[in-house]
Design a protein around this nucleic acid. Structure first.
Ligand SMILES: [Mn+2]
Ligand SMILES: [Mn+2]
Ligand SMILES: [Zn+2]
Ligand SMILES: [Zn+2]
Lengths: 143, 143
DNA sequence: CTGTTCGATGAAATTAAATTTCAATTTCGG
DNA sequence: CCGAAATTGAAATTTAATTTCATCGAACAG
């Protein structure tokens, strides 16, 4: 899984004539090891522990490369905070978010995907991507 | 339609002990007259033509009030630009966006809404809100 | 109508986020 | 190893949004 993402990145870099640097490798590895939806800032904090010399700008720039190479995906749970999640080697999923405790559940639902396709088709669109977030209150928070 | 929104706003202001000012009225009226998804900046430009003295800050502040009073809704078509659309007296809709020409189509689909409810229920959530955007290429742009 | 009170306003200042600049450094093919 | 070209980190810049504050105006009692 991680190997595949690394191979994808390597290939992307070489295709674009970009270099495989220590910083890029470290940032990618760190990103792949986390299983949360993390912000640019959060990733930077973790990376900094492993290499104090890494700059925030490089994390910004590398995250942008990860998005371009389809290794990462930007998500926004309605709070205007950009978070990143794994995309490479993961099936597409949507999110169910508790507005109270902020817990998020990843949803994989083929019925939804099919319905989205048919709606797009109805209007003569070729569907490329979508983004769906459901906001509610979870069991625990509902008391 | 516009009358109802104005009544809602008036009621909201009085409930919160806020004042009905010339500026707030003008901004609300201008917003209600447009039928597009417009940015804070775009609304400001239109408002300024009617009253040169109005400040951008007031447009910001008033848009916030409109959102709080459920007259407006913030939307983001994936470009991180906040746009505002009418919410009061409009049935909920989702969006289908052409990634090429940026045309947007408003979707009302009860099947989707039902499916969303049932997904939320499956995970023990009470659904409060959702946001779905479909990105694709429209007929015209597909050539 | 006043006059008074307290919220509203606009300009400027501030804060915060993201991007750009640039000199020094690193990568990598030869 | 060398040198060209990309990369880096810090600082500067840009941009967006919020806050501050002196003045203004809405609302309401009298
Ligand atoms: Mn996710
Ligand atoms: Mn709309
Ligand atoms: Zn919860
Ligand atoms: Zn189009």
């Amino acid at each position: 899984m991680q190997k595949q993402a690394k191979a994808v990145f390597e290939q992307y870099l070489s295709k674009k004539n970009l270099k495989a640097t220590h910083q890029r490798n470290l940032i990618l590895e760190t990103f792949l090891k986390t299983e949360k939806h993390l912000t640019h800032e959060e990733l930077y904090e973790i990376v900094k522990k492993k290499d104090k010399s890494i700059g925030q700008t490089t994390v910004y720039r590398t995250l942008k490369l990860l998005v371009e190479s389809d290794i990462a995906r930007e998500v926004d749970f309605g709070d205007r905070i950009v978070r990143y999640e794994h995309k490479c080697c993961h099936i597409h999923h949507d999110h169910l978010i508790c507005m109270h405790c902020k817990k998020t559940i990843e949803i994989v639902d083929s019925q939804i995907e099919e319905l989205q396709e048919s709606i797009a088709a109805k209007y003569g669109f070729v569907l490329v991507d979508h983004n769906m977030s459901l906001y509610g209150i979870c069991n625990d928070c509902f008391k």
